[in-house]
Design a protein around this nucleic acid. Structure first.
Length: 413
DNA sequence: AATTGCTTCAACCGCGATTCT
DNA sequence: AAGAATCGCGGTTGAAGCAAT
């Protein structure tokens, strides 16, 4: 069927709205309510298309919009939600009263993504050598000290011209294209998450694994999922992918020996992400050795810009749970993607939490989905530190919408 | 003071999803 | 049931303004 444009382009005004237009639109909506956007401009006497009116109202004129800068708390919320949901701005915005999806999208693109992108650029540009050659970041003479959109674009084009797959950006964590190339794939919508079944797979854990992957089973600020399929066997190793600002730069420096030039675009402190990276660095410093001594650790990449900590589990999994019959000397399959969030230091002892363990969190300190019950219904864990995950434990279930979400609780409203 | 490069964000665009007829 | 209309979302663009040179 042919798609008609939302309105005739001829004769309609475009560009910035004037105060007078705003007033007309606001008055009309106050009198007649929202909706019927197609007929609204005609009825209101505006030379705008309905789409433009709707956008103007939603993003600017609504009375319940919050003005002013994004707060630190909001920023953290955005980062965490983006880590889990990808570029689903409307879902993210729904958790930030008074903020619009457009605003959050802009904020992400202009503030947050660059911080992460800068680090991935370092990884991309740096050879895995000279580990230990530590330099400080941000010493380059550069205005602003940020990675601009244009610079990112140039970088992307340069990589493309060289036939190099461009560095994964945060937005691509849930990139459907990347998903198709990813071993486990990425979630496209909530139905994908809620309808996952273990069919077509003999491995009873596969559905769970799939679910973890699809839900962005990487810690906050991770981007481990967007790699192309390769000979890297995720099931035989666990991986950590890094990104962030200053602290992550130091990780990069320590791991790969970035030069000053290579770190020049690294950003300033961003505490929350930095803490993630700090913990990761500690993991690296421990060489991935589990307290049990059963793990041999190494740092590697899969050749696709991704930093991984490879930990071979030789006897049992990190939770001490035997994972099927095998010889004593057989390397156990450890699936899933590790993040800095599923390993932490507690009371001076490393607690490396395998994602296969029930109740282990995706994000540090925040219990999410009980993955073992993923197929038949969710169980969620309380999180009293993150108000998004409300007191009754209605974690992301209602964000997923769909039928399964109802099993875990009603969406707050 | 002029130029250049960059950041920000409002607005536009295309398309899939949903609702209407 | 099918096509049309509309809504809503996410990606992208471009103008305005700022900062460095």
């Amino acid at each position: 069927m042919g798609r008609s444009t939302c309105c005739e382009k001829v004769g309609l005004k475009r560009g910035r709205w004037t105060a007078e237009e705003d007033e007309i639109l606001a008055n009309y909506i106050h009198a007649n309510g929202e909706g019927s956007w197609r007929s609204l401009p005609k009825n209101a006497g505006l030379l705008r298309c309905g789409k433009s009116c709707r956008l103007r109202w939603i993003n600017y004129l609504r009375a319940d919009l919050k003005r002013g800068n994004i707060t630190a708390q909001e920023e953290e919320t955005i980062v965490k939600l983006h880590s889990a949901l990808g570029n689903r701005w409307s879902l993210i915005a729904a958790q930030l009263p008074g903020r619009t999806d457009n605003e959050i999208k802009n904020y992400w693109n202009s503030h947050l993504s660059r911080k992460i992108y800068s680090f991935t650029k370092i990884i991309k540009d740096t050879k895995p050598s000279n580990i230990g050659a530590v330099t400080t970041a941000g010493e380059g003479k550069r205005r602003g000290g940020r990675t601009s959109r244009s610079a990112m674009k140039r970088h992307k084009l340069a990589l493309m011209s060289l036939g190099i797959p461009k560095t994964v950006t945060p937005n691509e964590v849930f990139d459907p294209a990347a998903q198709e190339n990813s071993p486990g794939g990425q979630v496209r919508d909530s139905k994908d998450m809620t309808n996952m079944q273990p069919e077509d797979n003999d491995d009873p854990d596969s559905a769970v694994l799939e679910g973890r992957r699809n839900l962005g089973m990487h810690g906050s600020c991770m981007h481990s999922s967007a790699r192309p399929a390769g000979n890297y066997d995720e099931r035989q190793s666990t991986g950590i992918a890094l990104s962030s600002g200053k602290e992550s730069s130091s990780v990069a420096v320590e791991m790969y020996g970035c030069s000053e030039r290579e770190t020049e675009e690294v950003l300033g402190p961003y505490e929350w992400l930095d803490n993630e990276i700090k913990r990761l660095r500690s993991i690296l410093q421990s060489e991935g050795v589990h307290p049990s001594g059963n793990h041999a650790g190494s740092i590697t990449t899969n050749g696709e810009n991704e930093v991984r900590v490879i930990i071979t589990e030789q006897d049992r999994d990190v939770n001490g749970i035997q994972k099927g019959a095998k010889n004593d000397d057989q390397e156990i399959e450890s699936y899933g993607i590790w993040s800095s969030s599923n390993a932490e230091m507690t009371d001076g002892e490393w607690q490396i939490r395998n994602s296969s363990s029930p109740g282990n969190s995706v994000f540090d300190d925040h219990e999410w989905v009980d993955w073992e019950n993923f197929g038949g219904g969710f169980q969620y864990y309380d999180d009293d530190q993150f108000p998004l995950w409300d007191d009754s434990g209605k974690v992301l279930c209602w964000l997923l919408d769909g039928d399964n979400a109802d099993e875990a609780g009603d969406a707050p409203n």
